[in-house]
Design a protein around this nucleic acid. Structure first.
Length: 764
DNA sequence: CTGGGTGCAGTTTTT
DNA sequence: CTGCACCCAG
């Protein structure tokens, strides 16, 4: 099969779907690095899919004479969702090919290595039994915070002077109301934990030279020591975090086993990695860049990167748009390929949006002087609208009001009008994009209220109200009723600083539920009696056992049938599981405590936080030290952290409801009508920008030291890109929601609004 | 429509 | 503490 035959099967001639010449050019990329710059709505995922199919099935074409085995192809994307989407597309296209030529079914596409980079690292380290990844528990962000809180000397040793000196080096890690360098006290435990976690992660993601930090001396020497201490704790406790996972994978690639995986052994059955395809490359960071270049180290270096530098929005996670913008330099630095020999492809035809919308967001991103500075964007032509829209009408408009309340009302009336006049078929076709979707007065609160006043349902899945939900409070309250009955421990003034605000509310919720659910009340009473009966003894059940039992009782058992409550209860179970698994340290040795069998005297395992013992002093309670940690570490975190709801995997937007999303959540999605609020924003330099600036002086790989723009310029570019993503989601209409003062001051989101943008004086 | 004073609320996100 | 939203005076 040659490329043309492949395309003819996937896109039958005369049909309505086909690739553009630009897209086809990428599919025919012969070999070597490919730098694909793909604007919004340009079909980049489709192109990536077709390249994979070409590699798998084409065996008779000038660009490819033989098929590439599936296990020699790596495809990575940024999120799990995107990875599933890609896999689906590949198998859909494959089905068309197999229908024409059943012999192609022999090629086993389940051997393709498709996934997120993190998933790939994890799988490969396990598959090859890498010595630094044996029996290791991969921690999520919550576990990592608990781990740092419990293990790192800076946090657990009470040495205020040393702490203050350390944090004075990184004052911007804290918001002004959290801590300032002039204070005589160090920042509070959780704030310093989170700050330290961010720095430790960033150190790895940014590929910082730890010896370089150490050599600089001062607090950076202290930081280098903290990093080594952290790595040692991880190894001693058989743990790994998401950043270290990548570092360990990079180490693995340099071992003989890793080399054999990458380069193969010359036999037909083991050809090593021959193609590496990366989607969403604009969100790649320096350590990921190095991994990709390591994977593609063998000539002819078949590394295809696809992305849009204008849609980079993951700086907080280490994402460095510089990796995408200077991909040609990277090819020179890592592979020795002259930068002019790197194949560059542009995809600038937009098939998503009305031409007014395309013109608007293309003008928008070009209008800012910072975006025209060298290194801000890759050079690419303007985005061109290719979508055919049946009617001519102005598609970009503004809706304004004197104050936010009135604006929210005008927005809700507009949506109502679109539905009543059958301009949209369903409320879910109108999406509101905001910076934050918290239901507070400054954020989504007023919009939600206004939509409800119009009788419209709102879909706002991630409004950070996790700890306020009835099912979450009820389960936590029931646990407290078992572990600290009558609230004896929590009410003791001696323990006051361990008890988070909101603890009483959990108990009240439980009490209310227990009044109507006799089985629940009976279980709690029975548990208390059992704990009273054996003071000082270990309990038969651990923390998770108790939680699972509670979940089997009413009202929790019925709530498991409710899709929304079920997801939240599952999330809470996951948090409890993470907490339960945390090893308990022996205060004298600093090593994890061992569980010794009473019968044999042998060590049977490590004691973890989930392990419970009845108090000897206060019958009916669990031991005080455990309760203290549970209140302070677990509840304190859960109540303060404001977790998002986990998004349901399959349902993007349920029909019948108006979705409210953050601009980040909307990335990769599209909606017929898009409303964008929060138009008064100004750029703010964040901890991410400051850390980047600091660390850019200590590159582990000097050949890839980025020259970063000043922090304030990076902050401005980030904000511009965020609104660019928001504006480019709209298919048929884009409506900017602002107060009169927003439009008067022309903040970043409205900087270049053109005269031709229609102002809506009344709801549509 | 603009400028100043007062009052209140208080990021985004993924592996 | 900052900075946005709002209100009122000019």
């Amino acid at each position: 099969m040659n490329v043309q035959q492949l395309l003819d099967i996937l896109y039958p001639p005369g049909g309505n779907k086909h690739l553009t010449p630009d897209q086809e050019g990428i599919v025919r990329h012969p070999s070597g690095p490919a730098w694909v710059l793909a604007g919004p709505g340009s079909g980049k995922t489709e192109v990536l899919t077709v390249i994979v199919l070409r590699l798998l099935y084409v065996d008779n074409d000038p660009v490819q004479g033989a098929r590439v085995p599936p296990e020699s192809i790596i495809v990575t994307t940024f999120t799990e969702k995107a990875a599933r989407n890609l896999e689906d597309r590949i198998s859909q296209h494959r089905a068309k090919l197999v229908a024409v030529d059943p012999s192609l079914a022999e090629i086993d596409i389940s051997k393709l290595r498709v996934g997120t980079l993190h998933g790939l690292c994890n799988d490969l380290l396990q598959e090859f039994r890498a010595p630094n990844y044996q029996n290791v528990r991969l921690m999520d962000q919550f576990e990592q915070a608990l781990f740092v809180r419990e293990h790192m000397s800076l946090i657990k040793q009470k040495n205020p002077l040393a702490e203050i000196s350390f944090w004075q080096q990184f004052p911007w890690m804290f918001r002004p109301q959290q801590w300032k360098p002039t204070y005589t006290n160090p920042p509070n435990r959780w704030n310093s934990t989170h700050a330290l976690v961010s720095i430790l992660n960033r150190l790895v993601e940014d590929r910082v030279s730890v010896p370089g930090l150490r050599a600089t001396g001062g607090q950076l020497h202290v930081l280098a020591d903290l990093y080594d201490e952290y790595v040692e704790h991880l190894i001693n406790n058989y743990r790994c975090d998401f950043s270290q996972l990548q570092a360990r994978f990079l180490d693995f690639l340099k071992t003989p086993v890793g080399r054999a995986f990458r380069d193969g052994d010359g036999t037909p059955g083991n050809r090593g990695i021959e193609w590496v395809l990366v989607d969403e490359y604009q969100d790649t960071n320096p350590i990921q860049e190095e991994i990709y270049f390591q994977l593609a180290d063998r000539a002819p270096h078949n590394l295809v990167v696809v992305g849009d530098d204008d849609q980079a929005m993951y700086r907080f996670r280490g994402g460095s748009v510089e990796c995408m913008v200077t991909f040609d330099d990277a090819c020179q630095a890592f592979l020795g390929i002259p930068k002019t020999n790197v194949s560059k492809y542009d995809l600038v035809d937009n098939f998503r949006s009305h031409s007014d919308i395309v013109d608007f967001f293309d003008e928008y991103i070009r209008a800012f002087p910072v975006m025209r500075k060298p290194g801000a964007r890759t050079s690419k032509p303007s985005i061109t609208a290719k979508k055919v829209v049946p009617h001519t009408y102005p598609a970009v408009g503004t809706l304004s009001a004197g104050k936010l309340d009135d604006l929210a009302d005008a927005f809700a009336q507009t949506v109502r009008g679109l539905i009543d006049n059958k301009i949209v078929n369903d409320p879910s076709e109108c999406c509101l994009l905001l910076k934050s979707t918290k239901e507070s007065p400054h954020n989504a609160g007023k919009y939600v209220a206004a939509l409800r006043d119009q009788g419209l349902d709102v879909y706002n899945p991630r409004n950070k109200a996790f700890a306020e939900q009835e099912e979450v409070q009820g389960l936590l309250g029931a646990l407290l009723a078992v572990l600290d009955p009558n609230r004896r421990y929590a009410a003791d003034p001696a323990n006051a600083n361990m008890i988070p605000a909101g603890e009483q509310e959990l108990r009240d919720t439980y009490t209310r539920l227990a009044a109507f659910n006799p089985d629940l009340a009976a279980y709690v009473a029975k548990a208390t009696a059992a704990i009273s009966a054996h003071p000082g003894d270990p309990l038969d059940s651990n923390l998770q056992d108790i939680a699972y039992y509670l979940l089997s009782l009413e009202p929790f058992s019925s709530w498991q049938q409710d899709p929304v409550r079920r997801v939240r209860l599952a999330q809470l179970t996951k948090l409890l599981e993470a907490y339960s698994s945390m090893p308990v340290l022996d205060p004298t040795t600093g090593k994890p405590k061992e569980m010794v069998s009473k019968k044999t005297g042998k060590v049977v395992g490590l004691i973890s936080r989930g392990f419970l013992r009845a108090s000897g002093h206060f019958p009916g309670e669990v031991v005080g030290a455990w309760l203290g940690s549970f209140y302070h570490l677990f509840l304190g975190y859960v109540l303060a952290a404001g977790f998002d709801d986990d998004e349901d995997d399959d349902v993007i937007v349920p029909p019948g409801m108006v979705p409210i999303m953050t601009m980040h959540q909307a990335k990769g999605l599209e909606f017929p009508f898009v409303f964008v609020g929060h138009l008064g924003e100004n750029p703010q330099v964040s901890a991410s920008h400051e850390l980047e600036t600091l660390f850019s002086a200590y590159p582990a790989n000097p050949a890839r030291a980025f020259t970063r723009a000043p922090a304030d310029e990076r902050a401005e570019m980030d904000l511009i890109r965020q609104y660019y993503v928001a504006y480019s989601r709209a298919k048929y209409a884009l409506i900017l929601l602002g107060t009169n003062s927003h439009f008067a001051k022309k903040a970043v989101p409205l900087g270049p609004v053109r005269n031709w943008v229609r102002h809506l004086t009344q709801p549509l």
